[in-house]
Every structure is written in C-alpha cells, then in structure tokens.
Amino acid sequence: MMIVAEVMILLGALVLLISSYGTFKFQDVYNRLHAASISTSGGALLLGGGLSILGSLVHGKLFLKPLLIILIIFLTSPVSSHVVAQAAYRTGVPLVAHTVQDDLALAFLEW
C-alpha cells in the first residue's frame, strides 16, 4: 500500500514538472496558463491524494490535511488563472501570431 502512495506522489511531481516545462513551450500568456493549470488540477490531485494516503499510513490514523489543501487549490486556482488571463487581455498582451479566432474581442467591446 505504501508503494502505491509513493508512486502517486512521484507521478504528481512529474505532472508538476511537465506543467512547468510546458510554460516554456508555449508562446503567449494564454496558452501558458493552460499549461500551468495542469499542475493545479491533475498534479495537485495526485500529489495530495498520495500524501494523505501516505500520511494516514504513517500516522496510523486518517490524515486528511492534504485533502484540505487540494480543496483550497481547486477553489482558488481557476479563479487566479481567469484573473491573470483577463488582466493580460485588458493590458493588451498580444495573442500568438497564428491564432484563428478571438471570441473575447467581441465581448470586450461592450464593456
């Protein structure tokens, strides 16, 4: 059982690594946000789950604190990505050259 938890934690760590690396592969902020949000969703879940399992195994009794952390992350990270994207768009960060369609431009006008 211990091994499963540790593997989960390792996988989680790898997901985080991928998402950090991802931010370098994309050219503009908006795509990079996609990459970053992987870590706050999948990565956090895996890692948090592994940690809580490992914790409860180690301490004998149920150890749910990592789950609370996951809850907070799930609550806050989508919003922060949203806000960052919105701010970027508002301050006129250019979209990457080969974008096909920009829906927000229309909505942006009515503000």
Partner: peptide, 17 residues
C-alpha cells in the same frame, strides 16, 4: 464583468482564510 468572478470567490475564500 469587471471583477465579478474574483469578488464571488473572495466572498467564499475570505471566511476560509
């Protein structure tokens, strides 16, 4: 549209913090 979403979340997050 301006800061609507963060305000909603903030209303939820603040008591938590």
């Amino acid at each position: 549209m301006d800061a609507f979403i963060p305000r909603m979340i903030a209303r939820l997050a603040t008591p938590l913090i």
